Amino acid sequence: MKTVKLGNSNLNVSQIGLGTMAFGRWISEADSDAILDHAVNSGINLIDTADYYGPGQDEKPAYGDGTSETIIGNWLKRNPSIRSKIVLATKVGSNTNPVMSNPSLSRDHILQQVDSSLERLQTNYIDLYQAHLFDNNTPLAETLTTLSGLVDEGKIRSYGVSNYTEYQLTQALAIIKDRRLNPLTSLQNRYNILSKHDDQDVLKLAQRSHVGFLAYSPLARGVLTGKYLNGAMPSNSRAAHGEPLIKEYFNDDDQQAVEKLKAISDQTGTPMSQLAFAGVLSVPGITTALLGASKTSYIDDAIQAAELKLPQKVMAQLKSL
């Protein structure tokens, strides 16, 4: 698989990355291992997780217990030669307290959590450490200075942010420049052919600023595969597992867009999922599309999408959805 440079860093990442939000949540450790093996053997080198990912996400209040990181760490321990061949990314800043919601990007919380993540991942460095959400209760300069300091300390190779708006990214870049911090490597935001209009401005800012863009939810949490058309509810799907974030796509406008995508799929003979991935990867400024695979076959599908050369007419149809 083709690899591309991530922002202004020395990290080369595959155009398809593996998202692991469901590891230990509704994907068992054994199945997670099989997915990791298949991803790496297929040329995917970016593995993305978070200290928040695990079964606690489905509790009230939602919290992270690091199960996904633990699974990946156990896998790395069994496969020590793989560590130097992958780009290991994780995140900090979402709630990790099962008793009360206390998300934070304070210096103290970051320093505590990075050590916990390193321990769970069973590694002595993280390639990309990301602020999971914007923290309105912590000065942004405190967060960025702490992350930059971790680069100097060697615990992380680079840092990024996630779920930032254009205004928030503008603020971050200004602080980094003013304080002469280590540069920001990446922005990880949701981006798919249903939500694309929401992220155009921040994507363009990232591109102008040489910040890599990691697009999560390129398949709109599975909606763009067509599995939920006509009210269908597959038994092992995210929606059936109670994934709350998928509900926002169950509206008339998005359903009509999915129906149009199916028509393009039927016309071209190309699976809907591959069209959705190709539509994201064709956008200037997007470095990698992150796949949350629950089956190894989904990885094969995404890789084929990365190699697609769609006619301009089809690309124009995808952009018009």
Rank of each mutant, 00 (worst) to 15 (best):
V151N: 13
L150S: 15
I110F: 09
K85Q: 14
I176A: 11
S162G: 07
L181G: 15
E166C: 15
M100R: 14
V99Q: 10
Y129H: 04
P183Q: 08
I86R: 06
N97I: 06
V92E: 04
D135S: 04
A131L: 00
S158W: 02
D178I: 01
S81R: 07
L133W: 04
T170I: 01
T185Y: 06
I156T: 15
R157L: 11
S116E: 08
I126V: 12
S116H: 00
G149P: 13
S84Y: 09
S104W: 12
D127F: 10
T165G: 07
D178W: 03
R83N: 12
Q130K: 03
A141E: 14
A131Q: 06
L128F: 10
S84A: 15
I126Q: 14
T90F: 09
Y129G: 03
I126H: 12
I176D: 11
Y167F: 11
N97K: 14
P139R: 05
R120W: 00
L181T: 12
P139H: 08
T170R: 06
S101T: 09
S81P: 02
S117V: 00
D108Q: 13
S148A: 15
I126Y: 05
D135G: 01
S148V: 07
V92N: 08
E153V: 07
Q130C: 05
P139M: 06
L133E: 02
I156L: 10
E119L: 07
N136Q: 04
G149N: 14
P80I: 06
M100Q: 14
R180C: 04
N136D: 09
A141Q: 15
S117K: 03
D152L: 13
G149T: 11
S106K: 02
D108S: 13
S81H: 08
V99R: 12
Q113F: 00
R180Y: 08
D135F: 07
S162V: 09
F134H: 05
Q112V: 10
T165F: 02
S106E: 02
L144R: 15
I175N: 13
L133M: 01
L147P: 12
I110K: 03
L133S: 01
N102H: 07
Q168A: 08
S104I: 01
E166A: 14
